[in-house]
């Protein structure tokens, strides 16, 4: 078990870089949560049994999506904390999360735009 200060402040003993693991872990978790939100949103609309399961389990499909996104964010964050980031990995996580968040947003907006105006 690593001391908590290693996780919070100084992590990578291999390269000698002193990098907190928290930002890297948070942006990795953001990537996963964004993908889950976009994936669940679109698939729940296309697959009625999934939407019904979300409704049945969480009382409302939107609550289900929020709870699952929160759970996935927290689990991904905790898993990512076990990795020692380098400056390069952290930079990649930041750029990737910008792209993934933008693409997730476009996917959700584009999907409902298509469903509302072009499907019928």
């Amino acid at each position: 078990m690593e001391p908590i200060q290693n996780i919070i402040r100084e992590s990578n003993y291999k390269t000698g870089e002193k990098i907190s693991r928290v930002p890297h872990a948070a942006f990795c978790a953001l990537i996963v949560a964004s993908l889950v939100i976009a994936g669940l949103t679109i698939s729940a609309d296309l697959i009625p049994p999934l939407k019904n399961w979300l409704k049945g389990t969480f009382s409302h499909h939107w609550i289900g999506k929020g709870v699952l996104a929160l759970a996935v964010f927290l689990i991904s964050f905790l898993i990512s904390l076990s990795f020692s980031p380098t400056e390069r990995r952290e930079r990649i996580a930041l750029y990737s999360s910008a792209w993934i968040v933008a693409l997730s947003t476009f996917a959700i907006v584009g999907f409902f735009l298509y469903e509302a105006f072009f499907l019928h």
Binding site: S20, P23, F27, I37, A69, V101, T105, V109, F112
Partner: peptide
């Protein structure tokens, strides 16, 4: 649905500023 992204984005940003 896009609103669901906002708390997670702002939380990740806060982590960057507080810990990075």
């Amino acid at each position: 649905h896009v609103f669901l992204l906002l708390p997670f984005i702002s939380l990740a940003l806060a982590c960057a500023f507080f810990f990075g």
